[in-house]
Write a protein that binds this DNA or RNA. Structure first.
Lengths: 145, 145
DNA sequence: GTAGGTGCAAATCGTTTGCTGATTC
DNA sequence: GAATCAGCAAACGATTTGCACCTAC
């Protein structure tokens, strides 16, 4: 994975290109998304931003995250029964492993998964544009309890 | 796939076992879920039930679908940005192919996908309890336009 | 007869939007 | 200085819930 600073600079550059402003609140959101491994929810980003900027509103976090999603700089993992989660490190579709107990989400590195889109496209005639590969389970930490 | 009547009888039996009643509205929902290939939304089920029972309310459909989901007799495909979709034929997790244009959802039969849970479990130490494998693309019909 | 179901309306919850005043460039 | 952004509150849309009446068993 690219290091945090590089990714942060990348996102900043993309925003500037598009003529967007870099407010302190927005910078805080970018920093969290560039550095976090745990695929935070908007609410979690909000709580962390509030430490430095207590006046920040939830709507502002939503607006920045939505903007980044539309720019393709953040991957949204939507859940119909829970808050959506966001990945600013690898903003393209990739497999995830989700703990049903602690809700932790980690990236899943399994070589055979990367060829799936082509296999599916060939065997179905669909033009594959995206994918969502989630495995739900109990993580080793939660199993121990 | 089991034929519609068999699946319908199965669901009816499971409800009876649990002491649930078979009202006309509920029967209509069961029939739709047992027979439909297209993974209908609650709203779509509602529209079809209303043809025969115009007094039916949306809440009733929701309650029946929720009951069946909790019993494990229906698979819920949740979408954070759209209505959830339901599969009463194969109520266990399996891969789907989703057309991003017409929203059609079809089952995806690719042999290599079925071994994935074990592979993931072994390589990660997680105890896999479920999965969600969705491929998004443009179906052949929509590509033609 | 009674537990469970229906229909209606109100509540919920994550997310989005409209607007006004503030701020970045 | 002007366009964009922040903050607030209200709106949204899918789903859930509370409750009074009804009906399958």
């Amino acid at each position: 994975m690219a290091d945090t600073q590089t990714r942060l600079d990348e996102m900043i550059a993309r925003l500037r290109e598009r003529g967007h402003r870099l407010t302190p609140q927005r910078m805080a959101v970018l920093r969290i998304l560039a550095s976090s491994e745990e695929h935070p929810s908007v609410e979690q980003i909000y709580e962390r931003v509030k430490v430095d900027f207590p006046m920040t509103s939830l709507a502002t976090i939503y607006k920045t995250v939505t903007l980044l999603r539309e720019m393709g700089e953040v991957l949204e993992l939507g859940f119909s029964d829970d808050s959506n989660r966001y990945d600013g490190n690898k903003p393209y579709p990739h497999p995830h492993l989700i703990c049903v107990k602690c809700k932790k989400i980690v990236d899943l590195e399994v070589a055979s998964l990367s060829e799936l889109p082509q296999v599916v496209a060939q065997s179905t005639g669909y033009q594959i544009v995206s994918q969502r590969l989630d495995f739900f389970g109990v993580c080793p930490q939660c199993r121990g309890k």
